[in-house]
């Protein structure tokens, strides 16, 4: 993996974790405590469908991604790893 890709992915994961904790109002959890491979929904982090709304909004507003491209992409929402990979591959205006 080229080093700049690894750096980009690491930066995206860090930003994602910070946004999840802030926008989903996750109590008693710090961004650095979320594992990259932790399952987001159900088991693991325990997010629900209304949290998914906020994640979609994050992907739209913070990363400039289109919601229509996320249809039937269950795999994207599995973990921070899968979200970051999707953002990296589809990013348009990562801040």
């Amino acid at each position: 993996m080229p080093s700049n890709e690894a750096q980009d992915l690491a930066r995206i994961k860090k930003t994602l974790k910070e946004l999840l904790v802030a926008d989903l109002s996750l109590e008693d959890i710090k961004p650095e405590e979320i594992r990259d491979d932790e399952v987001l929904f159900g088991e693991g982090l325990g997010l629900d469908s209304l949290d998914a709304v906020e994640i979609v909004v994050i992907l739209q507003r913070k990363f400039g991604l289109e919601v229509k491209d996320l249809e039937n992409r269950k795999d994207v929402f599995y973990s921070i790893d899968t979200l970051a990979k999707y953002i990296y591959e589809n990013k348009k205006n990562i801040s």
Binding site: V53, V67, L70, E71, K74
Partner: peptide
């Protein structure tokens, strides 16, 4: 559907 159909709902609103 996955996540209670949230992705489809958000897509429909967006459209």
């Amino acid at each position: 559907n996955f996540l209670g159909g949230i992705i489809e709902i958000m897509k429909a609103i967006d459209e």
